[in-house]
Amino acid sequence: MKIAMPLHENRISPRFGNAREFLVVTTTDDRDTGRQTLTLDIETPVQIAECLAREGVDLVLSGGMNSKYQREFRLRNIAVIWGLIGEAEDVLATYLNGQVFAGMGPCPPVRNPRRSPGGAKRTDERLAAKKDSRRKPVS
């Protein structure tokens, strides 16, 4: 399986449409077996989706993504998980651990938050609770 992530420096680009660099990771049995970085100097959703489809990408792990892009990926049978935040490597590792699902907000857990107010469970605790209930990506 091939997973693509839009990059801003080393982090997942907050906005898919702003990213020109993509990390494409090939995985076998949920293990990272090869990677490459794509730099695309193209603009439209159609072009980007087409290009990633040509690369054989099956899944996009993304931050915010405008519906225009989502539609193009859906048309090409590429699954999308959006709403992810953090270092690309962390997001990938979390996904390969089976812990990422669509629209989940900040992920992976916040490092050194200034304060953890409101008694809300820290994201890592929440994720730990879900460790066994792996969810398949939702397209």
Binding site: R11, P14, G63, I85, P106, V110
Partner: peptide, 13 residues
């Protein structure tokens, strides 16, 4: 509680 401590560009996109 989700956003305090996060980068602003990650939230506002």
């Amino acid at each position: 509680r989700e956003v305090v401590g996060q980068f602003c560009h990650d939230i506002f996109k």
